[in-house]
Nucleic acid binder design. Structure first.
Lengths: 327, 327
DNA sequence: CTGAAAGCGCTTACAG
DNA sequence: CTGAAAGCGCTTACAG
């Protein structure tokens, strides 16, 4: 059996209280007993049971993260950074891949609360499924508006969309199409679309946006892309709201005998490390994934520690244009 | 404050014992009191504290996963599948990105044990840092030999390596190079190298393998790739042990004015969804990521439940050649 | 400087 | 069918 604090106490010839004290470095302890206790712990290969600690402290040092799926490189990288920062700060991460499905998200949320997580970072977009605040849980959203009071961290979506659209226009594209998620979602990412539309209007063009359901079914994505070519045969520019859409589009364009950037120019969004390696020629708007993660964790931990003094409700981190050879 | 079982009991006019019984569906309870209790739980918005439950049950339903980083699409997808399968089976996932660093892995291991995880799935390759068994923890390794007694699940690495090498030879390549991780690691993935070497020898060629340190520093990867071109100017075939290496190689080849597959043919390994979307033309050996995940979780849970009857020490899942246009 | 007692929120024998 | 008691492994006032 795993040794417990009383086993250590017995072996060191002291009380459990004393062992706990040296464990937590609290109160006065003579150097001698401290050493005895440490020796006993080593001999028994003892390490504390954090479940028992959490129960007493009402603090688990656990944070939950809910996002669509780590299979998507943006979220895979985001998850890595979040977890790593958390680890360095003494927090542990409970991972939830909701696939953007409301039913799953609800179950995960309940699971996280049962497990007494101290806070949650949410990267899925189901608005207001549960009253997060009611349970006075610390929450931070990434690129999603969850409620009026939950801080959201995102890239500067409007600026990113603007850069993309303006770049395509400056390269002489006449018929520029946009691909994005569904509009009803009202995510900050919709600002990419807004910027695209604004730029188009300002330049006397008609914005056309195709919506792709973000349910991760390849079938329907493929379908929308075919649709674009069919409905807009004169397309010569595309701004995709993520790099995977951009890549699928390029693949289909080539399949149809269109050269990129010769006949169609393409700009993506995200600029993950993975897409930089696998598709370095893609011109894209890069999100600062590491700082998004860092900011989100920092805000969350402030909330957890009850320091609400200067928590920004909106944090927009700067994007960067990565010029490849697809424009 | 969060309601607890005694709050529910009070409201329902019964004892905590009774509430616990309806919660766990144990023992006889009259229909009436069951309804009363349920009503009380709803009114108070009660849900059980799993930390307290874990403490009593000595069962957390938590499993830890340690892998290099979810930033790598292979591990990102693996993580997604593992987590999703676990969720469907009532297990929760504590995520650890070790970056293949021993110091980090040790800390994570201790963290997981303190948190009383029921089992661990390990995808990093530091052999024998800790005596996993000593703590009688359920452990499964993915593509890593951790010890003689820990089950390992992997793709059929030898077969995969063989297919890749034979394909390149059949396409007429004369000077075929291999890129892999470091040999000392003795991972099952080394079988990819072994197969490559066997095929080369059998065909009267000299196998040449370049080792890339798997520490995820772009710098050194880039360096090794340049080195390949410098030391083997007549290279006309490459088998990379993962798709990211393959992609970096292709990028460098093009930069040097070499056409793929015209002058150099390339075969990768992994075949993740992400690389299928971003670099669909890559010819690669696809690992069955979903079944690797499923098998690993199933074995782990058997171990956790103490059913050691038919636990295979080695599971090799079949790979599939994905023919793109890089050979 | 150290220890006995109570309690974190649950569950499970044991009685009734 | 239901409840009082003890205990999971820890920690923190409170005494001494």
């Amino acid at each position: 059996m795993k040794p417990k604090i009383s086993d250590v106490a017995k072996r060191a010839g002291v009380s459990p209280t004393t062992v706990s004290r040296v464990l937590n470095n609290r109160g006065y302890i003579s150097e001698e007993t401290r050493e005895n206790v440490h020796r006993a712990m080593n001999e028994l290969n003892y390490f504390p049971n954090d479940v028992a600690r959490s129960l007493f402290n009402k603090r688990s040092n656990l944070i939950g993260i809910i996002l669509p799926t780590t299979s998507n490189p943006f979220f895979g990288e985001l998850t890595f950074h979040i977890e790593n920062i958390c680890a360095s700060l003494g927090y542990k991460v409970l991972l939830c891949n909701s696939l953007n499905r409301i039913d799953k998200e609800e179950k995960y949320l309940e699971m996280l609360m049962r497990n007494q997580v101290d806070g949650i970072i949410v990267g899925t977009h189901n608005r207001g499924i549960i009253n997060y605040h009611k349970q006075n849980l610390a929450v931070v959203a990434i690129d999603r508006h969850l409620s009026e009071t939950i801080p959201v961290v995102s890239s500067d979506n409007y600026e990113g969309g603007k850069m993309a659209a303006e770049l395509l226009i400056s390269k002489g594209c006449q018929s520029i199409i946009h691909i994005n998620g569904q509009k009803e979602l009202e995510t900050p990412a919709m600002l990419r679309r807004k910027a695209y539309e604004d730029v188009m209007m300002k330049n006397g063009r008609t914005p056309i946006t195709f919506e792709i359901p973000e349910v991760f079914d390849k079938q329907s994505q493929q379908q929308v892309i075919s649709q674009i070519f069919n409905e807009c045969p004169d397309i010569d520019g595309l701004f995709a709201s993520n790099d995977l859409f951009a890549a699928s589009f390029i693949t289909e364009a080539k399949k149809r005998g269109l050269s990129v950037p010769g006949q169609v120019k393409v700009v993506g969004y995200d600029g993950t490390e993975t897409s930089q390696i696998l598709l370095p020629e893609l011109t894209t708007i890069q999100q600062p994934i590491a700082s998004i993660a860092k900011t989100a964790v920092e805000i969350l931990i402030k909330e957890i520690e009850g320091d609400f003094s200067d928590i920004p409700l909106q944090t927009r981190l700067p994007v960067k244009l990565l010029e490849g050879s697809t424009v």
